[in-house]
Design a protein around this nucleic acid. Structure first.
Length: 282
DNA sequence: AGCTACTCCTGGTAGC
DNA sequence: TGCTACCAGGAGTAGC
Protein backbone atom coordinates (compact mmCIF):
# COMPACT_ATOMS: atom_id res chain seq x y z
CA UNK A 1 0.00 0.00 0.00
CA UNK A 2 1.33 3.36 -0.89
CA UNK A 3 3.31 5.01 1.88
CA UNK A 4 5.71 7.93 1.67
CA UNK A 5 8.20 6.31 -0.78
CA UNK A 6 5.48 5.17 -3.16
CA UNK A 7 3.71 8.52 -3.04
CA UNK A 8 7.00 10.33 -3.60
CA UNK A 9 7.71 8.10 -6.59
CA UNK A 10 4.28 8.74 -8.09
CA UNK A 11 4.64 12.49 -7.60
CA UNK A 12 8.06 12.53 -9.27
CA UNK A 13 6.92 10.51 -12.24
CA UNK A 14 3.72 12.41 -13.01
CA UNK A 15 5.25 15.83 -12.34
CA UNK A 16 6.77 16.41 -15.81
CA UNK A 17 3.48 15.51 -17.45
CA UNK A 18 1.31 17.73 -15.29
CA UNK A 19 3.18 20.89 -14.36
CA UNK A 20 1.90 23.83 -16.34
CA UNK A 21 -1.00 21.90 -17.88
CA UNK A 22 -4.48 23.38 -17.97
CA UNK A 23 -7.47 21.26 -16.98
CA UNK A 24 -10.03 21.37 -19.76
CA UNK A 25 -12.53 18.76 -18.73
CA UNK A 26 -13.38 16.33 -15.97
CA UNK A 27 -14.86 12.88 -15.76
CA UNK A 28 -16.15 11.51 -12.46
CA UNK A 29 -17.18 7.86 -12.39
CA UNK A 30 -17.34 7.49 -8.59
CA UNK A 31 -18.42 10.65 -6.84
CA UNK A 32 -17.29 9.67 -3.34
CA UNK A 33 -13.70 9.82 -4.54
CA UNK A 34 -14.18 13.60 -4.51
CA UNK A 35 -14.49 13.50 -0.73
CA UNK A 36 -17.91 15.07 -0.25
CA UNK A 37 -17.94 17.49 -3.16
CA UNK A 38 -20.42 16.98 -6.00
CA UNK A 39 -19.31 16.31 -9.56
CA UNK A 40 -20.67 19.65 -10.55
CA UNK A 41 -18.92 21.61 -7.85
CA UNK A 42 -15.64 19.78 -8.53
CA UNK A 43 -15.85 20.41 -12.21
CA UNK A 44 -16.63 24.09 -11.76
CA UNK A 45 -13.74 24.47 -9.34
CA UNK A 46 -11.02 22.93 -11.47
CA UNK A 47 -12.05 23.43 -15.10
CA UNK A 48 -9.89 26.06 -16.72
CA UNK A 49 -7.37 26.01 -13.89
CA UNK A 50 -3.69 25.32 -14.40
CA UNK A 51 -1.59 22.87 -12.40
CA UNK A 52 1.24 24.94 -10.98
CA UNK A 53 3.28 22.15 -9.41
CA UNK A 54 3.17 18.59 -8.11
CA UNK A 55 4.36 18.03 -4.56
CA UNK A 56 3.99 15.67 -1.65
CA UNK A 57 3.10 16.14 2.00
CA UNK A 58 3.04 12.95 4.05
CA UNK A 59 1.10 10.47 1.95
CA UNK A 60 -0.74 13.19 0.06
CA UNK A 61 0.03 14.35 -3.44
CA UNK A 62 -0.61 18.09 -3.57
CA UNK A 63 -1.12 19.98 -6.81
CA UNK A 64 -1.69 23.72 -6.35
CA UNK A 65 -3.98 25.21 -8.97
CA UNK A 66 -3.95 28.69 -10.44
CA UNK A 67 -6.47 30.58 -12.51
CA UNK A 68 -4.92 33.45 -14.44
CA UNK A 69 -1.95 33.29 -12.08
CA UNK A 70 -4.12 33.57 -8.99
CA UNK A 71 -4.01 30.70 -6.50
CA UNK A 72 -7.39 29.06 -6.14
CA UNK A 73 -6.55 26.00 -4.04
CA UNK A 74 -5.12 22.60 -4.79
CA UNK A 75 -5.89 19.08 -5.82
CA UNK A 76 -5.14 16.91 -2.81
CA UNK A 77 -4.84 13.23 -3.65
CA UNK A 78 -4.58 10.27 -1.28
CA UNK A 79 -3.96 6.86 -2.84
CA UNK A 80 -4.89 4.94 0.33
CA UNK A 81 -4.65 1.22 -0.42
CA UNK A 82 -4.99 0.79 -4.14
CA UNK A 83 -5.08 4.24 -5.74
CA UNK A 84 -2.94 4.97 -8.79
CA UNK A 85 -2.35 7.95 -11.05
CA UNK A 86 -1.99 7.35 -14.77
CA UNK A 87 -1.26 9.87 -17.47
CA UNK A 88 -2.65 8.52 -20.73
CA UNK A 89 -2.62 9.54 -24.35
CA UNK A 90 -5.95 10.64 -25.87
CA UNK A 91 -8.38 7.79 -26.41
CA UNK A 92 -6.73 5.28 -24.10
CA UNK A 93 -9.30 3.35 -22.07
CA UNK A 94 -8.46 3.86 -18.39
CA UNK A 95 -10.16 0.60 -17.41
CA UNK A 96 -13.07 -0.25 -15.13
CA UNK A 97 -11.51 1.16 -11.97
CA UNK A 98 -10.97 4.71 -13.19
CA UNK A 99 -12.77 6.91 -10.67
CA UNK A 100 -11.84 10.47 -11.66
CA UNK A 101 -10.21 11.84 -14.79
CA UNK A 102 -8.89 15.24 -15.82
CA UNK A 103 -8.63 16.11 -19.51
CA UNK A 104 -5.54 18.28 -20.07
CA UNK A 105 -4.78 20.94 -22.64
CA UNK A 106 -2.27 18.70 -24.43
CA UNK A 107 -5.00 16.14 -25.07
CA UNK A 108 -3.80 13.69 -22.46
CA UNK A 109 -5.76 12.54 -19.43
CA UNK A 110 -4.80 12.21 -15.81
CA UNK A 111 -6.72 9.24 -14.44
CA UNK A 112 -7.19 8.36 -10.81
CA UNK A 113 -7.60 4.59 -10.79
CA UNK A 114 -8.61 2.85 -7.59
CA UNK A 115 -9.91 -0.69 -7.22
CA UNK A 116 -11.09 -0.41 -3.63
CA UNK A 117 -12.49 3.13 -3.76
CA UNK A 118 -10.76 4.16 -0.51
CA UNK A 119 -8.61 6.73 -2.23
CA UNK A 120 -9.50 10.40 -2.53
CA UNK A 121 -9.03 12.92 -5.32
CA UNK A 122 -10.19 16.20 -3.87
CA UNK A 123 -10.24 19.85 -4.67
CA UNK A 124 -9.32 21.88 -1.60
CA UNK A 125 -9.71 25.67 -1.67
CA UNK A 126 -7.46 25.83 1.40
CA UNK A 127 -4.97 22.95 1.21
CA UNK A 128 -2.88 24.24 4.12
CA UNK A 129 -5.83 23.89 6.41
CA UNK A 130 -6.54 20.43 5.07
CA UNK A 131 -2.97 19.33 5.78
CA UNK A 132 -2.55 21.24 9.04
CA UNK A 133 -2.95 18.19 11.27
CA UNK A 134 -0.02 16.32 9.77
CA UNK A 135 3.10 15.74 11.83
CA UNK A 136 6.62 16.55 10.57
CA UNK A 137 8.10 15.14 7.39
CA UNK A 138 10.45 12.33 8.39
CA UNK A 139 12.91 13.34 5.66
CA UNK A 140 12.63 17.05 6.35
CA UNK A 141 15.13 19.24 8.21
CA UNK A 142 12.63 19.86 10.99
CA UNK A 143 12.68 16.18 11.96
CA UNK A 144 15.68 16.16 14.26
CA UNK A 145 16.83 13.41 16.57
CA UNK A 146 16.41 15.62 19.62
CA UNK A 147 12.97 16.74 18.49
CA UNK A 148 11.97 13.13 17.94
CA UNK A 149 13.11 12.25 21.46
CA UNK A 150 10.89 14.99 22.88
CA UNK A 151 7.93 13.92 20.75
CA UNK A 152 8.21 10.34 21.95
CA UNK A 153 8.68 11.31 25.59
CA UNK A 154 5.62 13.54 25.50
CA UNK A 155 3.35 10.62 24.64
CA UNK A 156 2.54 7.40 26.44
CA UNK A 157 1.49 5.31 23.49
CA UNK A 158 2.67 2.06 22.00
CA UNK A 159 5.40 2.84 19.51
CA UNK A 160 3.84 1.09 16.54
CA UNK A 161 0.43 2.80 16.52
CA UNK A 162 2.16 6.07 17.36
CA UNK A 163 4.43 5.87 14.31
CA UNK A 164 1.40 5.09 12.16
CA UNK A 165 -0.38 8.17 13.47
CA UNK A 166 -0.06 10.75 10.69
CA UNK A 167 -0.50 13.64 13.10
CA UNK A 168 2.60 12.43 14.98
CA UNK A 169 4.81 11.79 11.95
CA UNK A 170 3.63 12.09 8.34
CA UNK A 171 4.17 9.38 5.76
CA UNK A 172 4.90 6.11 7.53
CA UNK A 173 2.60 3.13 7.02
CA UNK A 174 2.51 -0.46 8.12
CA UNK A 175 5.42 -1.72 6.05
CA UNK A 176 8.01 0.91 6.82
CA UNK A 177 7.13 1.01 10.51
CA UNK A 178 7.66 -2.74 10.85
CA UNK A 179 10.92 -2.53 8.93
CA UNK A 180 12.20 0.43 10.96
CA UNK A 181 11.39 -1.20 14.28
CA UNK A 182 13.09 -4.43 13.29
CA UNK A 183 16.23 -2.63 12.21
CA UNK A 184 16.35 -0.98 15.59
CA UNK A 185 15.51 -4.00 17.74
CA UNK A 186 12.44 -2.31 19.16
CA UNK A 187 9.35 -4.37 19.95
CA UNK A 188 6.18 -2.78 18.49
CA UNK A 189 4.47 -2.88 21.90
CA UNK A 190 7.14 -0.73 23.56
CA UNK A 191 5.76 2.43 25.12
CA UNK A 192 7.08 5.54 23.41
CA UNK A 193 8.12 7.27 26.65
CA UNK A 194 10.14 4.25 27.78
CA UNK A 195 12.53 4.09 24.86
CA UNK A 196 16.15 4.58 25.80
CA UNK A 197 17.90 7.54 24.20
CA UNK A 198 20.19 5.23 22.24
CA UNK A 199 17.15 3.45 20.78
CA UNK A 200 15.52 6.72 19.86
CA UNK A 201 18.65 7.76 18.02
CA UNK A 202 18.76 4.44 16.19
CA UNK A 203 15.07 4.62 15.31
CA UNK A 204 15.41 8.15 13.99
CA UNK A 205 18.19 6.98 11.70
CA UNK A 206 16.41 3.78 10.69
CA UNK A 207 13.22 5.57 9.68
CA UNK A 208 15.14 7.92 7.42
CA UNK A 209 17.31 5.16 5.98
CA UNK A 210 14.41 2.85 5.21
CA UNK A 211 12.44 5.63 3.52
CA UNK A 212 15.41 6.84 1.48
CA UNK A 213 16.31 3.36 0.33
CA UNK A 214 12.69 2.68 -0.62
CA UNK A 215 12.48 5.91 -2.63
CA UNK A 216 15.65 4.91 -4.47
CA UNK A 217 13.97 1.65 -5.44
CA UNK A 218 10.71 3.40 -6.39
CA UNK A 219 8.76 1.88 -3.52
CA UNK A 220 7.49 -1.61 -2.81
CA UNK A 221 5.17 -3.76 -4.95
CA UNK A 222 4.33 -7.07 -3.36
CA UNK A 223 0.83 -7.50 -4.76
CA UNK A 224 -0.86 -6.48 -7.97
CA UNK A 225 -1.78 -3.03 -6.75
CA UNK A 226 1.05 -0.57 -6.42
CA UNK A 227 2.72 0.37 -9.68
CA UNK A 228 4.47 3.52 -10.72
CA UNK A 229 2.52 5.72 -13.15
CA UNK A 230 4.61 4.08 -15.85
CA UNK A 231 3.28 0.68 -14.88
CA UNK A 232 6.51 -0.56 -13.35
CA UNK A 233 6.58 -2.25 -9.96
CA UNK A 234 8.91 -0.86 -7.31
CA UNK A 235 11.62 -3.12 -5.99
CA UNK A 236 11.98 -2.35 -2.31
CA UNK A 237 9.93 -5.45 -1.41
CA UNK A 238 13.10 -7.44 -2.04
CA UNK A 239 14.68 -5.62 0.91
CA UNK A 240 11.94 -6.49 3.41
CA UNK A 241 13.37 -8.08 6.53
CA UNK A 242 10.11 -8.70 8.37
CA UNK A 243 7.07 -7.44 6.49
CA UNK A 244 5.13 -10.33 4.96
CA UNK A 245 7.76 -12.84 6.10
CA UNK A 246 5.79 -14.67 8.78
CA UNK A 247 7.45 -17.98 9.62
CA UNK A 248 10.50 -17.28 7.52
CA UNK A 249 13.90 -16.97 9.18
CA UNK A 250 15.00 -13.60 10.49
CA UNK A 251 17.83 -12.39 8.28
CA UNK A 252 19.75 -11.32 11.36
CA UNK A 253 19.38 -14.28 13.75
CA UNK A 254 17.52 -17.01 11.85
CA UNK A 255 14.60 -17.28 14.25
CA UNK A 256 11.16 -17.39 12.60
CA UNK A 257 9.47 -14.06 12.00
CA UNK A 258 6.29 -13.65 14.01
CA UNK A 259 3.07 -11.95 13.06
CA UNK A 260 0.93 -10.37 15.75
CA UNK A 261 -1.87 -7.82 15.68
CA UNK A 262 -1.26 -4.39 17.16
CA UNK A 263 -4.01 -1.81 16.98
CA UNK A 264 -5.88 -3.89 14.39
CA UNK A 265 -2.78 -3.96 12.20
CA UNK A 266 -0.84 -6.99 11.07
CA UNK A 267 2.58 -6.55 12.66
CA UNK A 268 5.75 -8.43 11.81
CA UNK A 269 8.70 -8.84 14.12
CA UNK A 270 11.56 -11.07 15.18
CA UNK A 271 10.92 -12.13 18.77
CA UNK A 272 14.63 -12.56 19.38
CA UNK A 273 15.94 -9.34 17.81
CA UNK A 274 12.98 -7.35 19.18
CA UNK A 275 12.42 -8.65 22.70
CA UNK A 276 9.16 -7.75 24.38
CA UNK A 277 9.48 -4.89 26.81
CA UNK A 278 9.35 -6.03 30.41
CA UNK A 279 6.07 -4.97 31.97
CA UNK A 280 6.87 -2.37 34.57
CA UNK A 281 5.22 -3.11 37.87
CA UNK A 282 4.45 0.24 39.40
C1' DA B 1 -5.12 10.89 26.81
C1' DG B 2 -5.25 6.64 24.64
C1' DC B 3 -7.49 2.54 23.50
C1' DT B 4 -10.93 -0.47 20.79
C1' DA B 5 -14.42 -1.24 17.41
C1' DC B 6 -16.53 -0.08 13.30
C1' DT B 7 -16.80 1.67 8.53
C1' DC B 8 -15.51 2.06 3.81
C1' DC B 9 -14.45 -1.55 -0.52
C1' DT B 10 -13.25 -5.47 -3.51
C1' DG B 11 -9.75 -8.78 -5.39
C1' DG B 12 -7.39 -12.60 -3.77
C1' DT B 13 -7.25 -16.77 -1.43
C1' DA B 14 -8.23 -20.57 1.75
C1' DG B 15 -11.29 -24.18 2.45
C1' DC B 16 -14.62 -27.29 0.98
C1' DT C 1 -14.04 -26.58 -11.15
C1' DG C 2 -16.90 -23.63 -8.62
C1' DC C 3 -18.71 -21.89 -4.69
C1' DT C 4 -18.61 -19.31 -0.17
C1' DA C 5 -16.43 -17.00 3.62
C1' DC C 6 -13.06 -14.37 5.11
C1' DC C 7 -9.07 -11.28 4.93
C1' DA C 8 -6.10 -6.98 4.12
C1' DG C 9 -5.82 -2.28 5.48
C1' DG C 10 -5.25 3.98 6.02
C1' DA C 11 -7.90 6.96 8.17
C1' DG C 12 -12.04 8.91 10.09
C1' DT C 13 -15.31 8.51 13.72
C1' DA C 14 -17.74 7.04 17.88
C1' DG C 15 -17.65 5.31 22.43
C1' DC C 16 -15.36 4.03 26.72
Amino acid sequence: MPELPEVETVARLVRPHLEGRRIERTRVAWERTLGGRSRRSFSQAVRGARIRSVGRRGKFIVMPLVRSRRKIGALVVHLRMTGRLHVEAPGVDPGPYARVGLGLDDGRWLHFVDVRKFGRFQFEPDPDQRLADLGPEPLGDEFTCEGFREMLAARKRLIKPLLLDQSFLAGLGNIYVDESLHRTGIHPLTRSDRLEVSRVRALHGAVQEVLEEAIEREGSSFDTFYRTPEGQPGSYQHQFRVYGRRGKPCLTCGDPIQRIVVGQRGTHLCPRCQPRPRARVR
